[in-house]
Design a protein around this nucleic acid. Structure first.
Ligand SMILES: [Zn+2]
Ligand SMILES: [Zn+2]
Ligand SMILES: [Zn+2]
Ligand SMILES: [Zn+2]
Lengths: 146, 146
DNA sequence: TGCTAGATGATACACAGTCTCAGGTGGATC
DNA sequence: GATCCACCTGAGACTGTGTATCATCTAGCA
């Protein structure tokens, strides 16, 4: 749950035009607690009776990512999802049942990455760490329930 | 560059049948230095005049992954690739120019992951760390060259 | 109130990956 | 070696994600 305005402003500040479709996508994105896929956003828009082209959803999520208001992560199994989140570099712990995600700071990982670079001789430009498991709520919930 | 026999044996040990298509895929996979995609394997088979259905390439890579002879990684930008590698849990440093990859041990990361689990309350079941950069050879090579 | 670069949606497209199903084959058994 | 069947295969259809194209529209500025 984020402030829709924060997303819209981020786009504005970066020089993107504030159009109706972008506002709609921003609002839907802001209303999401965990991660979400492009398809989910498109579906919710449709369900709410808002008409936004599929391509525009992708383009807007792209823009939001470039503005660092949203981050794209890889789902185990092969898909992709987005999470609304803070601009500083960090990583996510994603609940594999309900999708709720928490951000974790990079801190000690940065040091680890540097040391790997030193050891392997690679100049490491990019790294991605993603953690999957069960959030506290889902651990407490009975096995089969959804 | 791996021993094709190691891959074939891994399948055999796990109870998979040793068929001609599987041997072919194993051989092509074994001949690869860095990472590779399913499409690349299919293309190389075709180029060599070996007939292997596209579906079978996917199925065999799947089997090889299940047997832990190969690992599937996420490429920045959205695709997927595989790397032939050791069965123990570890991660990869992948050269974003030439694709050559090096394995790095999990070691200190495991501890970091545990501490993240403790801090967030999540029961972390799975984690993926992928590192991208330039290998020593590609750092040395002139800027635009391939 | 124009004007125009930038944005939109429809549609077509490219591509990865999965599924189905009729036919083929490894390898165990005799 | 011949038999047999569970497992495997290739062809091709299908699904889903993401991108490209292009005629049309519009935000934001003068
Ligand atoms: Zn984030
Ligand atoms: Zn959960
Ligand atoms: Zn590996
Ligand atoms: Zn390289």
């Amino acid at each position: 749950m984020t402030d829709p305005l924060a997303l819209v402003n981020a786009l504005d500040d970066a020089g993107y035009r504030l159009t109706a479709p972008r506002r709609s996508v921003a609002e839907i994105v802001a209303g999401r607690a965990g991660h979400f896929t492009a398809a989910e956003i498109a579906a919710e828009a449709r369900a709410r009776g808002i008409h936004v082209g599929r391509a525009t959803v992708f383009r807007t999520l792209d823009a939001l990512e470039r503005v660092e208001a949203v981050e794209r992560i890889d789902i185990p199994g092969g898909g992709h999802a987005y999470v609304a989140c803070e601009p500083a570099h960090h990583h996510h712990v994603v609940c594999s049942r309900c999708g709720r995600s928490v951000e974790v700071e990079d801190g000690r990982l940065a040091a680890l990455v540097r040391s790997i670079g030193r050891r392997t001789g690679y100049r490491i430009d990019e790294h991605r760490l993603e953690l999957y498991g069960l959030c506290t709520a889902c651990q407490a919930a009975p096995e089969g329930s959804r």
